[in-house]
């Protein structure tokens, strides 16, 4: 129906029609996924233009933080560095993915306002752009993960498949959160500040720098924190431990419900988003 050759735009024709139009937006963005990739890649290249190390600067600063916190907290908590350093390294890198995707999610539509107001590009394209950009960043920071895995011999105990499963579930969840934040931020300019505060709060409330051993298993403080589930499903298998099956289930349920909510909001607001900007 929607191709480069034929464009049809109509007034509202009921809720079902709005949902089908939203779905069409999603499908078109899939057909033009190369564009999302080009934009994401361009973002990374242009942000670090003229810099020799580029995104590796962030990697270096993360690496320093890992080193500092890994050594210091291991001493403070009385845990061995070999146990704590990889734990913190993965915590910081993967929480960086979460915070980055959600924070930048807020700016997704606002930043693309000139493109959205004069082309018929699918809106989902810009969500994928944000997600892909953060995955490209993650690929740089993966150096840290690889380093601790090799240095602390984790390759002997780690279990990659469940970690990848956790990463996939996390990305699916991050994508809807980013999209919801993008729509809300386009309409209400307070949202990005609010989201940033929440993420800043979350980094301390989530076991990124500390071990959740003080809590009994499945304590509400952890179970109610979505970031805990995202982090633990990726990190635990890489550390050679088993993540609680409940975390995978919660992430899966969150993904389904979250996307249902986000997609509905998108279907209803889609026509208006360009006017919000």
């Amino acid at each position: 129906m929607e191709s480069g050759q034929h464009m049809l735009r109509t007034g509202r024709r009921g809720t079902l029609f709005e949902f089908s139009m939203a779905l069409r937006d999603l499908v078109t963005s899939y057909h033009r996924r190369g564009l999302a990739w080009s934009l994401a890649w361009h973002d990374v290249v242009s942000r670090y233009r003229g810099s020799i190390l580029g995104p590796f600067w962030i990697t270096i600063s993360m690496g320093l933080m890992v080193l500092g916190i890994g050594l210091l907290y291991a001493k403070l908590f009385g845990i061995s560095v070999a146990e704590f350093m990889p734990y913190v390294a993965m915590g910081i890198v993967f929480f960086g993915l979460m915070a980055g995707t959600i924070n930048e999610g807020c700016d997704t539509f606002v930043q693309a306002s000139s493109m959205l107001s004069q082309t018929s590009l699918p809106m989902f394209t810009f969500i994928w752009r944000t997600v892909l950009r953060n995955l490209i960043n993650l690929a740089h920071h993966a150096v840290i993960i690889v380093a601790v895995i090799i240095f602390f011999g984790l390759w002997r105990v780690m279990d990659v498949l469940p970690a990848l499963g956790g990463l996939l579930l996390t990305i699916v969840n991050l994508a809807w959160i980013a999209m919801l934040a993008a729509i809300a931020s386009a309409r209400f300019r307070d949202i990005p500040q609010f989201v940033m505060s929440v993420m800043q709060f979350a980094i301390f409330m989530t076991p990124v720098f500390w071990k959740p051993d003080a809590f009994p298993d499945r304590h509400a403080f952890l179970t109610l924190n979505p970031f805990y589930h995202m982090l633990t499903t990726i990190r635990a298998p890489l550390l050679g431990q088993e993540a609680d099956g409940l975390s995978y289930i919660i992430l899966a349920i969150m993904a389904v419900l979250g996307w249902a909510l986000t997609f509905s909001v998108f279907a209803i607001t889609r026509r208006r988003i360009v006017h919000f900007l």
Partner: peptide
């Protein structure tokens, strides 16, 4: 160009658009 959705009525464009 397809950026603005009509509130009423319809727009149909056949052919590749360059705006």
């Amino acid at each position: 160009s397809g950026a603005y959705e009509p509130d009423e009525g319809q727009i149909e464009v056949r052919g590749r658009i360059a705006a």
